[in-house]
């Protein structure tokens, strides 16, 4: 399957849902309070945050009053434009090597799987990749990453279960320097954003990279599950507060969830979406494209 057909088929399920909800909104004849209320509900039910949804509706209302938007066709077009605009607020990421990517997120969002896919992505760019088993907490996490390392055919640096993850990072950097590795991808244990001590551990890992490897470009990606609701915003806030995030990887877009919260993330937090996950196979990872995403939604 090619790039476009894959993203299209992954978003098709998304599209079916979004259209259903919006079809009902657009069946309202008069564009008045009832219409705006329904539109707000529809936006929120795509997991777009309430604040952003309200803003989108207010924007539209203003344009209606100005008289610049007249009929329903134009309403849909305006909506689409607004969404793309909001997604484009965040600046895209440019890669430079040596590169260190640290993957963070709450439990079960698909960090380890995404790392396997990322390894394959950078290999295709003819870069050497080493994985770092920084999840020393969850049972069998490093075994899981090892299997992905085998699949992608890249090296992996790991310690035993319960080891200090910062020590694993330290060793990995030494190894990367010695072997001139282009890309180091660090796996971390899933942690709920409210666990202060675990967030401190993450800060420590980031400090090790900053201190030991200043010549590398250091990116911190949060992995978000598309099925997540409004809590995604709280996750990004907390992780961003701790380690300053550079990007988002949106996973599990092959389900029926819409992941509408990324609109709020790009717009309110100015954190770009770097990749989207569209399946369980090693090449089921795509670069994010705002227009395709919004086109898919409608």
């Amino acid at each position: 399957m090619g790039f476009f057909s894959k993203i299209a088929s992954a978003l098709k399920k998304t599209k079916d849902k979004f259209s259903d909800t919006f079809a009902r909104v657009f069946s309202i004849d008069r564009i008045g309070e009832e219409f705006y209320d329904e539109l707000l509900d529809a936006l929120i039910s795509s997991d777009i945050s309430v604040n952003t949804a309200m803003e989108i509706v207010d924007d539209l209302r203003d344009k209606m009053i100005e008289g610049s938007v007249k009929d329903k066709e134009e309403v849909i077009e305006t909506l689409k434009e607004t969404l793309i605009e909001k997604l484009s607020v965040a600046e895209p990421i440019e890669y430079d090597y040596p590169l260190v990517i640290m993957m963070v997120g709450v439990n079960g969002v698909g960090k380890t799987t995404t790392i396997g896919k990322l390894a394959s992505y950078f290999l295709k760019l003819k870069k050497s990749v080493t994985l770092v088993a920084g999840d020393t907490f969850r049972a069998a996490a490093s075994e899981q990453l090892s299997i992905w390392a085998d699949r992608a055919d890249v090296r992996i640096i790991k310690h035993g279960e319960g080891a200090d993850p910062s020590a694993v990072v330290y060793d990995a950097i030494a190894s990367a320097k010695a072997k001139n590795t282009d890309v180091l991808i660090i796996d971390t244990a899933g942690r709920l954003q409210v666990k202060t001590n675990l967030m401190e551990e993450l800060k420590k890992m980031a400090r090790v990279v900053d201190r030991e490897y200043p010549e590398a470009l250091f990116l911190k990606y949060i992995v978000l599950d598309a099925t997540t609701g409004q809590n995604a915003i709280s996750q990004v806030d907390a992780f961003d507060g701790a380690i300053e995030l550079d990007g988002v990887v949106l996973t599990k877009l092959d389900g029926t969830a819409k992941g509408g919260f990324v609109i709020s993330l790009c717009y309110e937090k100015e954190i770009p979406v770097a990749f989207i996950g569209v399946g369980e196979k090693i090449d089921d990872l795509e670069e994010f494209n705002e227009e395709e995403f919004v086109d898919g939604l409608f």
Binding site: K17, V106, D225, T227, T228, G229, Q230, A232, T256, A257
Partner: peptide, 12 residues
Amino acid sequence: VDSMTGQDAVNV
């Protein structure tokens, strides 16, 4: 069910 699930919880 992950308690952080959004609107999609119903479909699932």
